[in-house]
Computed example of a mutant assay.
Amino acid sequence: MSGLKLSHLVSGSIAVLLGYTSSVAIIFQAIDVLGVPQAVANSWMLALGLGMGLSTLILTLRFKMPILTAWSTPGAALLVLSLDGVSAPEAIGAFLVCGALLTLTGVTGWFERIAHLIPDAIGNAMLAGILFRFGLGVFSSMEENLPLVALMCATYLAGRRFFARFAIPSVLAVGILYCAATGAFATGAPFTFELARPVFTMPEFTLSALIGIALPLYIVTMSSQNMPGVVTLKSAGYQPPVSSAITVTGLTTLILAPFGGYAFNLAAITAAICAGPEADENPATRWKAAAVTGVLYCVTGLLGAAVIALFLIAPKALVVTIAGLALLNTIAGGLSAALHDPKDRDAALVTFMTTVSGLSFMSIGAPVWALLFGGLTSLVLTPRKTG
């Protein structure tokens, strides 16, 4: 970790901030539906934080790439709907089955073979579509807090013009100072800083939980999380070790499921932050930003619900704006690469629009449908070679 830069620290911090604030509320809803005690809820957050942190560090340090992992956000949304009436042991049993399926997927290597078939133009278009809503969030958040967003945008423009390397750190600093000066942080909630403790729940395996929780959780994690995660790294110029990464996330799920680590996968949005030029001009050393993220995830997990509450006091406009501005270069790069070759533009455009649409059928998210529709478009419109 020698040669650690300010951009590594800032990008890693933004990734953690975005990773928690974007979906931690959904995790709380799932825990609430399950009706477990506070100690068990804290154990869930400990397992999720440590799971993301340790798996990120293992993959990043082993392969020297910005390989970030995350909890399954669509999986959490699925749990909110499917955990009603399910006991905690049954849920843990379903999580273990999901972890076994993820591990088997990584070990067999079939997913990696499929991932390598994705054309670069379609992959870049899907990445741009995934990140597009974060860019839009900068402008939609103006309705919530125009002075804050306008100040951050002005700082970004000035930074890009005069001190490009420190543009995003400056935006974050200005945003925090403005919120502190105007009292925008929600500081009324009490905090107790203490280490979270793991609580083991003995699993129970039932056919209903297998069909209703384990299999859907596996499907949405693979389709809506792992596929975009692979594409994100490929679009940034890396050749990710797909099978090894899926195996690590699967084993992490198996180990931590009894403590609340319901499903881990490759990250896409947060990975884009650490794999982009804002993290480091040199792609060979961007992995240090991911390593920072891994360490911060571990710290956040150990401190449990207290630190998570700190994430939640930040105004939504601050989080949305810093995330959107940090991803602008990546969005532009993805769109540029996707539309560069005229023969691929139709397929890339179909892929991009399908991803942005948010289409979802049969528990399969828009990114996978985007790859399917884009691939079919490319197949139909690309002339076959004869002879």
Rank of each mutant, 00 (worst) to 15 (best):
T187I: 13
I219G: 02
A370Q: 06
I130G: 10
T252M: 15
I31C: 08
P147G: 02
N226H: 09
L381N: 07
E90N: 13
V231T: 12
H116G: 03
C98P: 03
V356L: 10
V199Q: 15
V199R: 13
L57V: 09
E204K: 13
G19W: 08
A291D: 06
T60Q: 06
A189S: 13
P147K: 03
S2P: 02
F311Q: 12
L151W: 03
L151Y: 03
G99S: 06
L303G: 10
N124Y: 01
V86L: 14
N265V: 10
E281R: 09
A184N: 11
R286V: 04
T206C: 01
E143R: 07
V248Q: 07
R165K: 13
V149Q: 00
F205A: 06
V292T: 05
Q29P: 03
A70I: 02
I168E: 01
M353R: 01
F193N: 00
G387M: 08
A154P: 12
L104T: 07
S336N: 09
V24S: 10
A150C: 06
E204I: 01
C298L: 09
S244E: 14
G250C: 03
N282R: 09
I27L: 14
F134D: 01
G387K: 10
G123K: 03
T155Q: 06
F132G: 09
T103W: 12
D84G: 14
F373W: 07
S224L: 03
K343R: 15
P367F: 13
T60M: 06
F200G: 11
V33W: 15
G229V: 00
A189K: 12
S224Y: 11
K64T: 02
A272S: 15
T321I: 01
T187G: 13
A214M: 11
P383D: 01
F205T: 04
S235F: 01
A70V: 05
E143C: 02
I331Q: 00
S2A: 14
F134E: 01
L349C: 10
I331W: 15
V86F: 00
G85W: 01
L381F: 06
A279I: 05
G49A: 05
R161E: 04
I114E: 05
T300L: 07
S72M: 02
I122T: 00
G387Q: 10
T351Y: 02
I27W: 00
L256R: 12
L325W: 03
S2H: 11
Y218A: 00
L335E: 06
F264L: 12
A125S: 08
P147N: 03
P216W: 15
T252D: 06
A128T: 03
G365H: 08
S223A: 13
A305I: 08
L50K: 09
R384E: 14
A125R: 07
L325A: 08
T330M: 11
P315R: 12
L172Q: 04
L131F: 09
T105A: 13
L151D: 02
L327K: 04
A125V: 00
G129Y: 14
T300H: 06
T355M: 11
L233H: 09
T330G: 02
Q239K: 12
L359Q: 07
I122C: 04
A314T: 04
L318C: 02
G375F: 11
T354M: 14
F264A: 10
T386A: 15
F373H: 06
L371Q: 10
F193D: 00
A150D: 02
L83N: 06
